[in-house]
Design a protein around this nucleic acid. Structure first.
Length: 193
DNA sequence: GGTAGGATGGGCT
DNA sequence: GCCCATCCTACCC
């Protein structure tokens, strides 16, 4: 496999630190794997753009739970987004996985995403990424330190990180909580020539 | 090359 | 009933 599975303590830290440190790590699900190249931090309480801003509900319960678990939700009635819960148990905070570079199971990803003509488009967005890796809402709440959905540390040196405001939100639009690998062609929203 | 609009369903007021 | 952490297509330069 691609390095050791990230331990619980990796996730039991400030959400922003987890969001940055997830860049370059390998996300695995079933027969597919991809290198995380773009993330966004969603904080608790004062972050009105986060689902947890309004407190614990049936949907947001996972975000307040123990770190290292998956929060998967449906967006716009058609797509699913993968988040990874951070902060100690009882504290809200999660990291949206926005884009990844396909590593294994590329043929399977193309079959799941026929609209993607090129490899760089397979997982270059939060909805695309879950489709390519076959991640759905039935993985909501699963433990990422064991099971079919895991994150691994390939042991590479930390990448150079660019920080920008988050994308696609209507609240807290200026907060610098989006992170991506500098110069990486697999991030979302790039113009293709 | 660029963009406007539609698909589609769950969560919350 | 309205909002939404999105993506794709059609259409227009």
């Amino acid at each position: 496999m691609t390095g050791r599975v990230l331990p619980r303590r990796f996730y039991s830290r400030p959400t922003i630190d987890v969001a940055k440190d997830l860049l370059g790590k390998v996300l695995r699900h079933g027969d597919t794997a991809a290198i995380i190249v773009e993330t966004e931090a969603y904080l608790g309480r004062d972050d009105l753009a986060s689902h947890s801003a309004r407190g614990i509900t049936n949907r947001t319960r996972v975000i307040f739970g123990p770190p290292g678990h998956a929060y998967v939700y449906l967006i716009y009635g058609m797509y699913e987004c993968l988040n990874i819960v951070a902060e100690p148990d009882g504290v809200a905070g999660c990291v949206l996985i926005r884009a990844a570079e396909p590593l294994e199971g590329v043929e399977l990803m193309h079959a799941r995403r026929p609209a993607a003509r090129r490899r760089v488009d397979l997982a270059s967005g939060p909805g695309k990424l879950t489709l390519a890796l076959g991640i759905t809402r039935n993985l909501n709440g699963v433990d990422l330190t064991k099971g079919s959905l895991t994150v691994h540390d390939p042991g590479d040196p930390p990448p150079a990180i660019i920080t920008t405001p988050r994308i696609g939100i209507t609240q807290c639009t200026d907060w610098p909580l989006r992170f991506h690998v500098a110069g990486n062609p697999y991030v979302s929203g790039l113009r293709r020539v």
